[in-house]
Design a protein around this nucleic acid. Structure first.
Length: 368
DNA sequence: AATGCGGGGGA
DNA sequence: TCCCCAGCATT
């Protein structure tokens, strides 16, 4: 028994499509319906804002203009282009999916829900976005923006992430997705969430759905969606060492498996119990075969999904008469070499180092 | 400092 | 069905 709706569902699509024609954004991936472009943009946009994605999207397509070139590339080259965007599993899934597209689908992006869903990194919502935008198939999406809009439109008082709520939300998303112009509808509802139906300050006076919105009618638009409190994330401390030699810095490469795969960073460690940050930095220096003093540069704060990081950066000169191991995972690099992409926290550390002037010395680091 | 977001994979 | 995951913009 379908639950009764508080309004005619066709009304929602009509209003949204009219609004989108006036107020929709002009974005690079909207100038095409190439499924590869749509897919790439949807993956990049997961957990990431439009402004951050645009330069990455353009650089990515310049390097990998089609599925074949992406599939043929080594996964490290893909990670390199992703460096700084975060959630690197997305890049690995993207590459793995491209390989499968070439192997199993002749390099042609499939157009059925079952096939699209079978690709790594694509779940129900992303599949719906690709099918509607690239193939004009009426497939629902339920990303964060749409979830917030539907919670308000239907005045859903259940916790929005509960499985009961998810079922109802998907059902509503299906009912509202039109048969005509599902691609424009998908873009329209995502735009509405990004620009009007905002999490804290919904701009209801500018909303084409205001006349239908049950939360607004009940004065609940700022209370919904109902979210559960997030548990506090732990703080971790680490120490990193910028070891200099002839204007170059020692960088190490992380393994290709696990966290931040294949990205570069300064040698680093966690202080042992009872050890100060400076003692840990000296220990790092010794382990690397250097000697002499370390100087404190400063502290970087970085937030990850599940912990906060406080990174203390030290700098030291490499001793010229000692050989410091250089190998595949360890290199002397001029600062900011694009071929040695640093992950986020260590990008911040490098920025700190560039701005830093050692006491009693002027401008040495400016050459970095 | 708190909040919000997508999806896969394993327990 | 839950938990976990090496970001970042916004407020």
């Amino acid at each position: 028994m379908p639950e009764p709706l508080p309004f005619n569902p066709a009304e929602v699509a009509d209003r949204l499509l009219a609004w989108y024609a006036e107020s929709g954004r002009d974005l690079p991936w909207r100038r095409t319906c190439d499924p590869y472009h749509v897919w790439l943009s949807e993956i990049m946009l997961q957990q990431t804002t439009v402004a951050a994605v645009i330069p990455y999207y353009q650089r990515f397509l310049a390097s990998f203009p089609d599925i074949e070139s992406l599939a043929a590339a080594p996964v490290e080259a893909v990670i390199e282009l992703w460096a700084g965007l975060g959630y690197y599993r997305r890049a690995r899934n993207l590459h793995a999916a491209a390989v499968r597209l070439v192997e199993d689908f002749g390099g042609v992006f499939p157009a059925t829900m079952e096939e699209v869903l079978s690709l790594p990194g694509i779940g129900r919502s992303t599949a719906g976005a690709i099918l509607s935008i690239a193939f004009e198939k009426s497939a629902p999406i339920l990303d964060g923006n749409v979830r917030r809009i539907l919670c308000r439109l239907f005045a859903l008082r259940q916790p929005a992430r509960s499985s009961a709520a998810e079922k109802r939300l998907w059902r509503w998303a299906e009912v509202l997705t039109p048969v005509e112009r599902p691609g424009d509808y998908a873009q329209a509802i995502m735009d509405l969430g990004a620009g009007v139906c905002l999490p804290r300050q919904p701009a209801c006076q500018a909303c084409p759905l205001a006349g239908l919105c049950q939360a607004l009618r009940l004065g609940l638009e700022r209370e919904l969606p109902v979210t559960s409190r997030r548990k506090p994330v732990p703080l971790r401390r680490q120490v990193a060492l910028a070891l200099r030699r002839d204007g170059a810095l020692l960088l190490r490469r992380r393994p290709l498996t696990g966290m931040l795969p294949g990205l570069w960073e300064f040698p680093n460690c966690e202080p042992l119990s009872g050890e100060s940050a400076e003692q840990a930095a000296r220990r790092l220096l010794t382990e690397l075969g250097g000697k002499g003093e370390v100087a404190a540069v400063g502290e970087v704060r970085h937030v990850y999904s599940h912990f906060r990081l406080r990174l203390s950066l030290f700098v030291a000169e490499a001793c010229p008469d000692r050989r410091i191991a250089e190998g595949e995972a360890s290199v002397w690099a001029p600062a900011a070499s694009p071929e040695y992409p640093l992950h986020g926290a260590h990008r911040k550390a490098l920025a700190l180092l560039k701005d830093w002037t050692p006491a009693g010395d002027s401008g040495t680091m400016a050459s970095l």
